[in-house]
């Protein structure tokens, strides 16, 4: 019984693959001969193909009506989130891991808009409809809406690495903080935490400018190896960095160069449940240089205590950092 099911399953998958292959632009007789061999290989193959074909033809007949129905839904789209339409990423694993992937009714194109949210300690890789890939760091929120002429992404509080596919006709923009990052095809990191924005470019050119007409400040052009820091006050600073260090969170590492302990703790608090508090504000200003591997919190705390003269003790909320 199980064998028959597996058999049918395989036939169904192969039937789909064949129907797709036969739509290919360079169809020729070799496709035909191989197709014939496959048909004859198992009785289930022919049945599966005929079933797929009848559904395929139904979509052909109904194409215009289905398109009209789908665009009607897009136009009606009343609420930003319909719980009914919450999808489970790639088959369950994503939701289990805490990634909520909300899809608007318009999700199936035109101006599709989707929202991706990650929780504490969570990192997600998302492939967008245009093939661009986004790595989303912990506790981040990303809204994506694509239309014919534009690819728009809004990064709420959070951090993401964008690997954008080239499409000169559809510029890719990331709105974060009160700035807009505009690119054509490139790889860069955007971090927007509590009003502090940094944009780090690894490849291509990126323009960062004020969002909307009310925004203040000039647009800046960033090239690979540059990072723009925009403080909450609006003060901007351009630095030369190794982009791979900035991108290292994607591989579960945090790299710091003379960064205050308070910043490092804020990052760690997005990764681990047990929240860390710094007892003394002066301690929070202590600079850290080094790499922190995000495996488990106890190990991270031990390594941290080797880098700085600090120790951690359990507290009501989680951990309290004290001077050694």
């Amino acid at each position: 019984m199980a064998g028959t099911l597996a058999h049918k399953d395989r036939a169904a998958a192969e039937a789909g693959a064949w129907l797709a292959r036969l739509q290919g632009d360079g169809l020729d007789e070799r496709d035909g001969l191989e197709f014939e061999a496959w048909l004859g290989a198992a009785p289930a193959n022919r049945a599966a193909y005929e079933k797929a074909l009848s559904v395929w033809h139904e979509f052909e007949d109904g194409a215009d009506a289905i398109l009209a129905e789908l665009s009607d839904r897009t136009r009606r789209a009343p609420r930003p989130y319909l719980p009914r339409r919450w999808l489970v990423g790639a088959g369950g694993a994503a939701l289990a891991a805490g990634l909520a992937l909300a899809v608007l009714p318009s999700a199936v194109m035109q101006a599709s808009a989707e929202t991706y949210v990650t929780g504490k300690g969570e990192r997600r890789t998302i492939t967008l409809a245009d093939g661009s890939v986004v790595d989303l760091n912990a506790e981040s929120r990303l809204q994506v809406s694509f239309s014919r002429g534009a690819r728009r992404v809004v990064l709420g509080d959070g951090e993401a690495i964008f690997d954008v596919t080239h499409d000169a006709k559809r510029p890719f923009t990331v709105a974060a903080s009160d700035r807009v990052v505009r690119v054509v095809g490139t790889q860069f990191d955007v971090r927007s935490r509590k009003g502090h924005l940094t944009v780090t470019v690894a490849r291509g050119k990126v323009q960062v400018g004020p969002a909307g007409r009310s925004g203040t400040g000039l647009a800046m052009q960033l090239t690979p190896g540059q990072r723009l820091d925009v403080a909450e006050s609006g003060r901007a600073e351009l630095k030369s960095v190794d982009p791979q260090e900035t991108f290292s969170w994607r591989a579960g590492r945090l790299v710091y160069r003379s960064q205050p302990l308070a910043d490092v703790v804020a990052d760690l608090n997005r990764q681990f449940d047990r929240q860390i508090e710094i007892a003394d504000p002066e301690l929070g200003k202590m600079p850290i240089t080094g790499v922190i591997v995000l495996d488990d919190q106890a190990a991270v705390m031990t390594r941290l205590s080797l880098m700085l003269p600090i120790r951690s003790v359990p507290s009501e909320r989680g951990l309290l950092l004290l001077r050694k």
């Binding site: 009506a65 289905i66 398109l67 129905e69 789908l70 999700a107 199936v108 409809a129």
Partner: peptide, 30 residues
């Protein structure tokens, strides 16, 4: 039936759905 077919397309993963819509429904080549 059209509604059912549209539902089925709408529930495909976004990229897969987009490919299906462009290729099958809007008639673009692969």
């Amino acid at each position: 039936r059209i509604r059912l077919l549209a539902d089925a397309v709408a529930d495909l993963p976004p990229q897969m759905g987009r490919a299906f819509r462009l290729h099958k429904l809007e008639g673009l080549s692969q």
